[in-house]
Structures are given as structure tokens and as C-alpha cells.
């Protein structure tokens, strides 16, 4: 009963928050600018959670995550602008085409993730860091050269379809599938690799395979998040996806606590909103990244589990009781005996 409640509660809470926000919006306590910030925070949540799969749960180190985001953003934006721009489109098809474009963007990011992950993850060591850093910059400099998609100026006129409801929906899905991933053999293999790669190998885990799976899965989510971002901003340019963006995601991740989904959510949410909330102090844009850099170093030095301590809220945890048959223990005479002794 408690488990049933546990699985229904989070969507219900999210829907309630959604209506609360709508109410505050109608009462003019919140304005559309606030909503915009909240949606950015949601995009960052998706990106940080996906980065956590690679860096936090699998113990690899990707620092070019914005590259996957840009592939998804461009991939999906090309599809929707092409289909919506040229011909008159049945309005009923808008949403299906949008969703399809997000899927394509995600798959594009996943394929590229596979192509760079396979050769790199085969090798022990920290090479993934430098390969992903170079990859992110190569994607960016390539995008800057392609004239049909606006080169360095970027793409404009992307239909604005992403709204708060879609954002909430996708954050929910991301959290759900990421949690399920972590509590499956795929997640267990990832954690085994992170905790002790030699032992994982000795326990029959094909370490390369599971590293690549985690990496591709993360790239896919980042791609979808990029698509949502494109249809929220309505314009995108290659330089928004540079290593500066990737580094920001690292700060969200480690501030929240790597290896904790809750931490990623809080890290991305809080650190996206705070700089905006402090705008009244004047223009902080230049100092924001300096402060982030200091936060990152201080956290690694003094609180490696992150500001929020690496805890996981119950929705993002799966207890073994939730799928153990209720009185299984007592039905099994052998175990029951042990209990009594």
C-alpha cells in the first residue's frame, strides 16, 4: 500500500506544483520571466541527471556534455523548422512532429556518443575526459561552419513549443527512467565498474559494454534536453554549447553530489535560480563562473559528497521490499529457521 502511494505521489505532487505555479502566475506573483528561468532549470536538471549517469554512477569522466546537447538541439530544430516553415501544417500534427524531433535529436546524440565512446571507453584511464572535451569543441566548431543552419550566427525562428507542462513531463520521465536504470543490472554493472573495475571484470562484467551503454543512454537524454532547449529559446547558436556550458553542468553535478539523482536535481535547480535571484546586486554574469569555479574546488576539497550530502529521496530509491513478495521470508522454511535461530 505504501509502495503504491509512493509511486503515485510524485506525479501528483508535480501536478499540484504545476497548478500552484499557474495560480501564482495568474495572481501576478510570478511573471513569465520566472517561468522561463524555471524551464531553464528543468533543462539543466535533465542534463545534470544524465551527466550523473556517466560521471556519478559509472565513474567515468565526461566533460563535453554540452556537445550532446547541441546535437539534440540542432537535430530537432532542423526537423521542426523544416516541417513547420515550408508548408501549411495540420495543427494537430504539431505536437507529434515536435515529439518525433526530440526523439531524433536524442538518437542523433546517442549514435555520436556510441561512436566516440566505444574506442575511448575500451581503454583504462582518464582519456574519456580529454576526448569528450575535444569532441565538444569539434562539434561546436563544425556547427559554426555549416551555412544552411546559420553557421556561427545560429538558427532562428524555431517554433516555441516547449512549455512548463512539457518540461515537467520530461523531467519526470528522465527521473523515472534514470532511477530504474540505476536499480537494474545495467546500473549495478555501472556502479560495480565505478567502485572497482578490476573486481567488476573478475565478476564477469563486460566493462566496456556497460560503460558504453551508460554513456549512450546519457547522451540520448542530453540530446532530448537539447531539443527541449531549442524549442524553448526559439534560437540557438553553436557558442551556447561550448565547454563553458559543459563546465557549468559539472558544477551542478558535484555541488549536488555525484551518484545521487536528488543531488543533481537540487544542484541544477538551486544553481540555476540563485544567480537570477541575485540579479538585483548588479551584473554578476562575469563573476558567476568564477564563483562556480570556487564552489567546485571547495566542494572537492571539503565536501566530496556534495552540498546536499548525497541523500536520495524515496521516489528516487527502490527498496527491496517493494518487489519482494510480502511474506516470502516466512514461506521459505529455510530462511524462517534462520530467523528464529
Amino acid at each position: 500500500m505504501k509502495n503504491k502511494l509512493n509511486s503515485i505521489l510524485p506525479p501528483v505532487v508535480l501536478v499540484l506544483i504545476y497548478f500552484l505555479i499557474q495560480l501564482l502566475l495568474s495572481k501576478k506573483i510570478l511573471n513569465p520571466y520566472h517561468i522561463q528561468i524555471l524551464m531553464f532549470a528543468c533543462v539543466n536538471i535533465m542534463l545534470t541527471v544524465s551527466l550523473n549517469i556517466v560521471n556519478g554512477f559509472t565513474g567515468q569522466f565526461c566533460i563535453g556534455h554540452a556537445g550532446f546537447m547541441s546535437l539534440g538541439a540542432y537535430g530537432s530544430a532542423i526537423i521542426t523548422t523544416m516541417l513547420f516553415g515550408g508548408m501549411k501544417m495540420d495543427p494537430n500534427l504539431r505536437i507529434p512532429v515536435f515529439l518525433l524531433s526530440l526523439l531524433v535529436g536524442g538518437i542523433l546524440a546517442a549514435i555520436v556518443g556510441f561512436l566516440i565512446g566505444l574506442p575511448t571507453l575500451k581503454i583504462k584511464g582518464d582519456y574519456l575526459a580529454i576526448v569528450t572535451l575535444a569532441f565538444g569543441e569539434i562539434v561546436r566548431s563544425t556547427l559554426r561552419l555549416i551555412e544552411p543552419i546559420g553557421a556561427a550566427r545560429g538558427m532562428i525562428g524555431i517554433p516555441k513549443i516547449t512549455n512548463l507542462a512539457w518540461m515537467f513531463f520530461f523531467v519526470m520521465i528522465t527521473l523515472y527512467i534514470t532511477r530504474n536504470f540505476v536499480y537494474s543490472r545495467y546500473g549495478r554493472a555501472s556502479i560495480a565498474i565505478r567502485d572497482n573495475e578490476i573486481a567488476a571484470d573478475a565478476m564477469g562484467i563486460n566493462t566496456t559494454r556497460y560503460k558504453v551503454i551508460a554513456f549512450v543512454f546519457a547522451a540520448f537524454i542530453a540530446g532530448v534536453a537539447g531539443g527541449l532547449y531549442a524549442h524553448l529559446m526559439t534560437f540557438i547558436q553553436p557558442d551556447s554549447f561550448s565547454f563553458v556550458k559543459s563546465n557549468e553542468l559539472l558544477v551542478y553535478l558535484y555541488a549536488g553530489g555525484s551518484g545521487s539523482i536528488t543531488g543533481s536535481v537540487l544542484g541544477a535547480l538551486v544553481l540555476t535560480i540563485i544567480p537570477e535571484a541575485l540579479r538585483f546586486l548588479g551584473n554578476l554574469t562575469n563573476w558567476r563562473i568564477v564563483i562556480y569555479a570556487v564552489i567546485l574546488v571547495l566542494i572537492m576539497l571539503y565536501k566530496p559528497s556534495g552540498l546536499f550530502g548525497g541523500k536520495e529521496i524515496s521516489f528516487l530509491r527502490i527498496n527491496r521490499d517493494s518487489f519482494r513478495k510480502p511474506f516470502n521470508k516466512f514461506n521459505d522454511p529455510k530462511l524462517a529457521d534462520k530467523q528464529n535461530s
Binding site: A129, L250, V290, A293, V294, L296, V297, L301
Partner: peptide
């Protein structure tokens, strides 16, 4: 080893953005 790698990224961010600011 991951810790020092992350810290190095933080130091890099600092060295670039402190003069920039």
C-alpha cells in the same frame, strides 16, 4: 583520481574566468 580531475577543471575555470571578470 576522479577528485583531482574535477578539481583541475575547477581550477581551469577559475584561471580563465577570474581574469575575464
Amino acid at each position: 583520481r576522479m577528485s583531482s580531475l574535477i578539481t583541475a577543471v575547477g581550477v581551469s575555470m577559475f584561471l580563465q574566468n577570474f581574469p575575464r571578470a
